[in-house]
Design a protein around this nucleic acid. Structure first.
Lengths: 240, 240
DNA sequence: CGTAACCTTGATTAAGATCAATTCTCGTGG
DNA sequence: CCACGAGAATTGATCTTAATCAAGGTTACG
């Protein structure tokens, strides 16, 4: 009856036993969001972290002028906003922390678990396994952000888009050599072009033009949310 | 005789006892670098992390065209390149990891300790205190990078410089209300203008022009590496 | 079908990078 | 102590990329 309430798919919880999972479920809350619904703003006081069970969540910042930049996209299994938990720890004096960015569900029926800090830390206290898993997850995120910053500051939009497309291909075909010819070079965008642009640090108009340019060079073919890579070598050439 | 070999000032080691510190010192190596010397490249295989004992280190990326972007500046007490340690952990199959970015000593006689991963992890195995400290340090860095990305993608150069200047003032006067008038609004840059520009995601020429603009508006006064804030309110207005 | 959200296209503008000289600063050796 | 020279910083002129502004066109969904 509650397939969407299965929190064992959250990577962070994967080492925990039935009992611990039930405990977490007991003090946490699970909520389903519609597409476009805000999960939290970066002005809200920090209360706990979140995990995606179903759907897709964007983590983003907005400038004074209203321009948006997507920092992360969180897929099922991912946790987000765990970071402030340890900022609190590091501060001797108590201080009112806020969430580091805004977050919004960008798929219909996105299911998210909200885990309050205090009981969670009590449960996992001295659990080195959880700590190591978090360290690994933080490490991954740090490297991602490093690469992201590198892209934003040192690459133009074409290069950033090329990198994105190439990582998307890798994602869908983790071990490529064993895959048959069919669909090998097809990418099915799971986000809107607006969100993709914002994720690449640009705007829809520019993204549209760059996609058009790559099409005119016979490197890709765009049909709505489907992008076919027609010339992988040329695309790879752009990221050099 | 070896004042520069005092590794207890490394924040990460601050909870360790004499014995443990000695152990770390035994399997680690300490080296003094000249200004401009490379500590590691982002192409090198990962062998261990580093801690700054004296001096100043920049962590940076370089584009194909040779443009540089500084991601972090590391001061005495800081550790860097600890991140890949936990990427290795998270990967079941062994893989050859490289350093996430380049690093260079940017002060004369920068003293750095290099800690090899394996013995360090054996020493700290199951030491939740170290893990929590690392989580806190990763958390801090993640928030910093978030803010950094926000700045690069959503702010113009003037705003980024203003933010930098204001955080520098905070840094030098942690509890401002008790400070006397003199020197209150003086910033002594500890990096070159080239490095500052690169840290702000721009180039020296642009930085120079922005500094000039702020001077012409009577907000700051620049004398080489000394910058005096003449109108704090106006400067703060730029970061809104 | 109708309408709202999404996407594309074109014309224009603006911010900042690039290119090209100077000028300034400071450490070093005569 | 001064002069030299190299690296650092400034300034000006120009160019490039991508943002902005302004219409249209497409798609999806009730």
């Amino acid at each position: 009856m509650k397939p969407s309430n299965d929190i064992s798919k959250i990577f962070l919880f994967s080492g925990l036993n039935e009992n611990e999972l039930q405990l977490i479920q007991d003090f946490s809350s699970i909520k389903t969001y519609s597409k476009g619904e805000i999960i939290f703003f970066d002005t809200e006081p920090y209360l706990g972290f979140y995990g995606v069970i179903e759907g897709l969540v964007k983590i983003y910042k907005i400038s004074k002028e209203g321009r948006e930049h997507i920092i992360h996209l969180e897929y099922p299994g991912c946790t987000f906003a765990e970071v402030p938990m340890f900022e609190k720890y590091s501060d001797s004096r108590f201080q009112e922390l806020t969430y580091p960015a805004n977050s919004m569900a960008i798929e219909e029926n996105t299911v998210v678990i909200k885990v309050p800090v205090k009981p969670f830390l009590e449960l996992t206290n001295r659990n080195t396994d959880i700590y190591l898993k978090m360290l690994a997850s933080f490490a991954k995120r740090l490297r991602f952000l490093n690469t992201h910053i590198e892209g934003i500051t040192l690459d133009d939009v074409t290069k950033r888009l090329s990198k994105y497309l190439l990582t998307e291909i890798e994602k869908e075909h983790p071990n490529r050599q064993t895959i048959k010819e069919k669909q090998e070079n097809l990418i099915e965008l799971d986000i809107s072009k607006y969100d993709l642009a914002s994720h690449l640090g640009t705007i829809t108009e520019t993204l549209s033009r760059v996609l058009k340019k790559l099409q005119s060079e016979d490197i890709i073919e765009v049909h709505g949310k489907r992008i076919v890579i027609k010339n992988l070598a040329s695309l790879k050439n752009y990221i050099k």
